[in-house]
């Protein structure tokens, strides 16, 4: 178990020192700051669009970091070492994904309330929005990992990673933004939240296996 946490911690430390956390959070804020300029300063319109916009910038910010998930390990030989660690590759992968979640998604979620203010979201709307993001974001990292692992042996595979992950993201986006919109009406959308959790749990089971298989293929 300590091996699991060591892998998780190392990945988080490297994401932080490599500046990926800062880049993703900056990306989120830049996106949100630009929105009012593009959409006009109508506060009611901004608030109506805010949940969807926040989901879009969250996913875009996360996509900027996906190609670093396994690419650096492939290039510097760490992937070879991951195959030999005293932990099944599936769990090594899971540990790295958890590290990625801690180093990137959690800071992004912390930034969402502030970003929401810029889009005229009331504090009352935030709990439901964050709940939906908490339920859906594990799936974003897990499913994005599948795209990243398939593109790992491709040089400059960042674009391929994004293209491969995008179809997986559509259901999360639909239910996540849907549940968040209900927050504006002051309702708790239990059905959509349950579906988001289901997607996250299903990805938790399937993604590490799929990613490990893709990585084994990549070290040949």
């Amino acid at each position: 178990m300590s091996v699991f946490w060591a892998i998780c911690r190392q990945h988080a430390v490297l994401a932080w020192r490599g500046g990926h956390t800062t880049l993703a959070v900056a990306f989120l804020f830049i996106g949100v700051t630009l929105m009012p300029f593009g959409l006009g300063p109508e506060l009611a319109l901004l608030q109506a669009l805010a949940p969807g916009l926040l989901w879009v910038v969250l996913i875009m910010a996360l996509l900027t970091s996906l190609d670093r998930l396994f690419q650096a390990d492939y290039e510097d030989g760490s992937l070879d070492q991951m195959m030999l660690m005293p932990l099944p590759l599936e769990f090594v992968v899971l540990a790295k994904l958890l590290g990625h979640y801690i180093a990137l998604v959690l800071p992004l979620l912390l930034a969402v309330p502030l970003a929401g203010l810029l889009l005229n979201l009331a504090p009352a709307h935030l709990p439901m929005l964050l709940l939906a993001m908490l339920a859906g974001s594990p799936a974003l990292v897990l499913l994005g990992g599948i795209g990243a692992s398939l593109a790992v042996s491709v040089r400059r595979g960042g674009l391929l990673t994004v293209l491969l992950s995008l179809p997986f993201y559509v259901p999360v986006m639909i239910f996540g933004a849907g549940a968040s919109r209900q927050a504006l009406a002051g309702e708790v959308d239990e059905t959509r939240l349950a579906i988001l959790l289901l997607i996250s749990l299903a990805s938790l089971l399937a993604a590490p296996v799929a990613i490990a298989a893709a990585l084994r293929n990549a070290v040949r």
Partner: peptide, 8 residues
């Protein structure tokens, strides 16, 4: 490829 991480 030595698997070492430059930032560490």
């Amino acid at each position: 490829a030595d698997g070492l991480k430059n930032p560490l």
